[in-house]
């Protein structure tokens, strides 16, 4: 039948309207209101305090010539590309292997997923200690006989971003694995049997049948990872605090620093608005695709 609880009488719908009021208020004032305010500030010449001197897109022009912002963008691009590729690959491989009826499956899953339960601060501090150039892994390498080995990436401006990648892959690969495992388990057992009867080798079944069927899991994982890339802040603060120099600065940290320490509201909000647009560009196609899928399912 068609959606059956259609309109109920006004008298009985009133409590529902009341119950929804807090959420509506939050959405209107604290989501839409603050977002528009942020966008508005970015079009003014505000410094320490907000003013309403409209300057158009000048802040975005300033932003486009700000070395620190440009470094943040470059860093996040490198970080994002490496992190997403690595997390997706490792996460999928782990899921595919765990799905091969291995022993101690639940133990392995726990081991791969536990980092995700911890905060970025904890993650950052743990890796910062292990990567410490005097007492961390480098010393371990020296102690076991590789006297010339160098593993001082965390203090090298050209390598520090990779250390962030390692730490965040450690943190998030388990999440990808969990999503992928759910996707794999959602594949009908009959598909496997049919492919086996056809005599296909396992890797071909994966590449040509299973992975295409898991588009949804990949899309979900991609969107989650991508938004976590844009949001990246705590990890950079805890692990390197943006350093050395500005070698591990990221946009979220740029915004926070300019808002609360450097007192340049307009520039900070211009950067925040840029982040917002990026997220919308990433999420909108996926959202549209999900919506279409839901509508198709509704019709079928």
């Amino acid at each position: 039948m068609v959606a059956a609880a259609k309109r109920l009488r006004i008298g009985s719908r009133l409590p529902a309207q009341i119950a929804l009021a807090p959420a509506l208020l939050i959405a209107l004032v604290l989501y839409c209101g603050t977002t528009s305010w942020t966008v508005w500030i970015s079009l003014t010449s505000s410094r320490m305090l907000p003013n309403s001197v409209f300057v158009g897109l000048r802040q975005y022009d300033v932003l486009a010539n700000n070395d620190r912002w440009l470094a943040s963008i470059a860093n996040i691009a490198t970080f994002g590309a490496l992190f997403m590729t690595a997390a997706l690959t490792i996460g999928f491989l782990l899921a595919a292997m765990i799905d091969q009826k291995v022993r101690a499956e639940s133990l392995l899953r726990s081991v791969f997923l536990y980092p995700f339960s911890m905060s970025f601060i904890v993650t950052g501090l743990a890796w910062r200690w292990m990567l410490d150039p005097t007492l961390g892994f480098e010393k371990l390498l020296h102690d076991i006989g590789f006297a010339d080995a160098h593993f001082d990436w965390i203090v090298r401006p050209d390598r520090v971003i990779y250390t962030l990648v390692i730490a965040s892959v450690w943190h998030a690969a388990g999440l990808v694995m969990a999503i992928m495992l759910a996707g794999l388990r959602g594949v009908d057992r009959e598909i496997w049997n049919a492919a086996r009867v056809d005599g296909l080798p396992t890797w071909r079944i994966f590449v040509f049948i299973i992975i295409p069927m898991m588009r949804g899991s990949f899309a979900t994982a991609c969107v989650l990872l991508a938004t976590s890339v844009v949001k990246l802040y705590d990890l950079s603060v805890a692990m390197t605090n943006g350093g050395p120099g500005i070698a591990s600065e990221v946009p979220a940290k740029f915004v926070m620093d300019y808002l609360f320490e450097r007192g340049n509201l307009a520039l900070a909000t211009a950067a925040a608005t840029t982040m917002l647009i990026t997220v919308v560009v990433v999420v909108a196609p996926w959202y549209h695709w999900q919506g279409r899928k839901a509508r198709m399912a509704g019709i079928a």
């Binding site: 039948m1 059956a4 609880a5 259609k6």
Partner: peptide
């Protein structure tokens, strides 16, 4: 047959559909 409106009619009598 399904979709002929019979359940909707019943829901209307019950007051579950306006």
């Amino acid at each position: 047959p399904s979709g002929c409106g019979k359940s909707t009619l019943l829901n209307a009598i019950a007051g579950l559909t306006e």
